[in-house]
Design a protein around this nucleic acid. Sequence first.
DNA 1: CTCTCACATCATCACCCGCTGATACCAGCG
DNA 2: CGCTGGTATCAGCGGGTGATGATGTGAGAG
Lengths: 102, 102
Amino acid sequence: MLTSVDPDVIRVLGDPLRLQIVTLLARETLCTTHLVEETGARQTNLSNHMKVLREAGIVETEPCGRFTYYKLKPEVLAGLSEQFAALADSARTATENKRACP
Amino acid sequence: MLTSVDPDVIRVLGDPLRLQIVTLLARETLCTTHLVEETGARQTNLSNHMKVLREAGIVETEPCGRFTYYKLKPEVLAGLSEQFAALADSARTATENKRACP
DNA sequence: CTCTCACATCATCACCCGCTGATACCAGCG
DNA sequence: CGCTGGTATCAGCGGGTGATGATGTGAGAG
């Protein structure tokens, strides 16, 4: 399969702050306040990034009183892992598949 | 390990054109001319992206006469795959690790 | 030797994107 | 209820980034 990885998800994870958020969320479920403390970013900035992550389907929200908890969707990361593994696998055999010079 | 994935590599792969290039190179080793044909992008544009991919350590160049062949470095993709797998694994158990509301 | 082609580099421009401040919304609590 | 605090949304600004054209370099053909 010519499974090209979904560029959107990768682009979303390409931002350093968002990647930090994802790394934090991979350890524990956190709410916005915690993320503000951990990252040092402004709340409004965080909220923006969380929206991006939400729309990319990487995180889920879970309201708890007036707090909003975020947790990762492991299957998305697992999917990425698989797709990269497939690319790596394909790349290993591609070294010999050299198209002729024109 | 709190192996946060390298943001640089991911950001490089976040660009749709570069991801297309990587997908193509995962199938066969190609030179710039082939990539121009396949992607429809300008040569100078391609060369820019190839430079980015080269500096990110994702591809290797192999001169062949006056042509330059590019091939992927599978270990980079494999590393990404592992790191995402680790994140996904960690995320699966993180759902219960909910930090208390402040 | 010279000319041509493949490729890389440089400088420039325009545009997208993330950061910021202001503001609206919603849930508890008194 | 009204107030307070946590969160989301919106408009605007500035910097980073990708696309483009001109130019340089090096290898092979004639």
